[in-house]
Amino acid sequence: MELSYYPGCSLEATAKEYNLSAMAACKALGIELKELEDWICCGATSAHSTNQKLALTLPAQNLAQAQNMGLDLAIPCAACYNRMKRTDHALKTDEEKRAEIEEIIDFKYTGEIKVMSLLEAIVNGLGTKTVAEKVTRPLQGLKLACYYGCLLVRPPQITCFDNPEKPMTMDNLMKALGAEPVKWSYKTDCCGASLALTASSTVEKWVTRIIDMAEEAGAQAVVTACPLCQSNLEMRRKNRLSGIPVFYFTELIGVALGLPDTKNWFVKHLIDPAPLLRALSLAC
């Protein structure tokens, strides 16, 4: 399977380990990721909070690039994915907006490129059975709280991904890797996103509740598919930088497939997940 790939700005900096593990995991799974040439920022929250037109036009430039490459698009960052998916939806359903955007970007939208989160591309594109067949070190005994956050699942009429109140895609993937996903009620609660910087004491309450609930459900770690969720859940909890670690789902694919680079990803975490993996004899 060949896909175009949009890493997004965070994966070049604060979420480097997500980028490294995503590329390594996909390679091992037989998915060839081709990075979009000269991709630009999706505009994120700051664009959609201040200028609707900009919020649709910036992502459209990237969709035009993917269209040029002729490959379906996989996006690891949940926030970038959401902006791209919304733009794709607007281009599909709103003729007036499409005409304006096509004119600014100077391209013709064909609607032939499928926009997916990387999680969706792996689970729905490849399938958990194929993933399970490649597992060499099952994540036995690892109890995980799968945390989807907001932007993979909402708004449901745009993302069209899983059940917005009780998604199971990541849970099924973790099961395929041999781990034990726990049942809990905070899978799709908000981590505070970029408010972590501007209203940090408020966000601390939200994050602490999510971490407390994951622990109460018996999880030894949280697993995410979003750089902002990952860093907020690590940094913004009340007991700063201590307690259960927070993985990217791609890192756990790496562990289960016995990939050699996992150590290089884990040293980048602010809460080191290596001791937990060692305790369960899962570390390389």
Partner: peptide
Amino acid sequence: IFNNVFLDSVKSMGRVHE
């Protein structure tokens, strides 16, 4: 202020330099 500095970064570099 955050929204403004974020978009300024995108406008000048094309990407956000965190």
